[in-house]
Simulated scan of single mutants.
Amino acid sequence: MTAADLVSFAESGRVATLTLNSPASRNALSLAMLAALADRLSAIANRVDLRVVILQAEGPAFCAGHDLKELTAHRNDPDRGRAFFDETMRACSAVMQRIVALPVPVIAAVDEMATAAGCQLVASCDLAVAGPRARFCTPGVDIGLFCSTPAVALSRNVAPKHAMEMLLTGAPIGAEAALRIGLVNRISADGARTGALMLASEIAQKSPQAIRFGKQAFYAQREKTLSVAYDLASAVMVENMLAADAQEGIAGFLEKRAPNWSR
């Protein structure tokens, strides 16, 4: 499959949709799939007209994590696969960070199982909507491979004890449990895609400038000490206040009219 086939792209009403499209492999994150996803995200990063991205999947799973068959095939390499394993983990980590760095919000729409690095993919998105049948797990411990890189994203989404329980037991959790611990934002009875589109449509009505400022600041301040976080956030607020959308939005509020956002 070509890169375009592996991750398809569509857009409607300033909302972009990326679809993992390798159902035969349960959308496993092979090196080719990671490269395709990275390419799509890079292209979106340069689109100032897009407001929100939805990440969804075709087939019986949202994402089965790393492609274990592909990884195992390299155990016969002279270095026992070390170079390929390193390349794969670095590529995966780069994709997760690219999602966080994207100027616009990314919503995961999960209707089926998200496993290991697939769960990491969900946790790396800014928001997540689950369908009633969605399930999530980090079962590396069951095969002697602790989900250390999924733990990075997971531990930044849910409380440490919830994250450790998932990582240490490998047991799957359903949509309700994922909502309770904060891995997903909401459950859509009509399916994750419908729920994600409703959420995206709501966000797309807001100021794009404010959201770009806000997303970047949210992740930057989270890793700082309290005082440094406030310094950083205060500086961002000043720049945001000087931007056109803030001027327009405040004027609209004071004048009791709807704001006319910039692109």
Rank of each mutant, 00 (worst) to 15 (best):
Q97P: 00
R98N: 07
V100I: 12
V100P: 00
V100N: 01
V100L: 05
A101D: 15
A101M: 06
L102T: 09
P105V: 06
V106M: 05
I107R: 05
A109E: 05
V110T: 08
V110E: 02
D111M: 03
E112S: 14
E112L: 05
E112D: 15
M113T: 09
M113Y: 10
M113H: 12
A114P: 00
A114E: 01
A114M: 02
T115W: 02
A116S: 15
A116D: 15
A116W: 12
A116V: 03
A117T: 01
A117C: 08
A117L: 09
C119S: 13
Q120M: 14
Q120H: 11
V122F: 06
V122K: 07
A123K: 01
A123P: 01
A123H: 04
S124L: 02
S124T: 07
S124C: 08
S124K: 00
C125Y: 12
C125A: 13
D126L: 04
D126P: 13
L127G: 06
L127P: 08
L127M: 14
L127H: 15
A128K: 05
A128Q: 09
V129D: 10
V129K: 04
V129T: 08
V129Y: 04
V129A: 05
A130I: 10
G131E: 04
P132S: 14
P132I: 11
P132A: 13
R133F: 11
R133H: 14
A134V: 12
R135W: 10
R135V: 06
F136P: 09
F136Y: 15
F136R: 11
C137S: 15
C137F: 08
C137K: 11
I143W: 01
I143T: 11
L145E: 01
L145P: 00
L145I: 13
L145T: 13
C147T: 13
C147M: 04
C147D: 15
C147H: 11
S148Y: 03
S148C: 03
T149M: 13
T149H: 08
P150S: 02
A151G: 07
A151W: 03
A151N: 08
A151F: 06
V152T: 12
A153K: 01
L154V: 15
L154M: 13
L154K: 08
S155A: 10
S155E: 14
S155Y: 02
R156K: 07
R156C: 06
R156A: 15
N157Q: 11
N157Y: 00
V158N: 12
V158S: 13
A159F: 03
A159Y: 02
K161P: 00
A163D: 04
E165A: 03
M166E: 03
M166F: 03
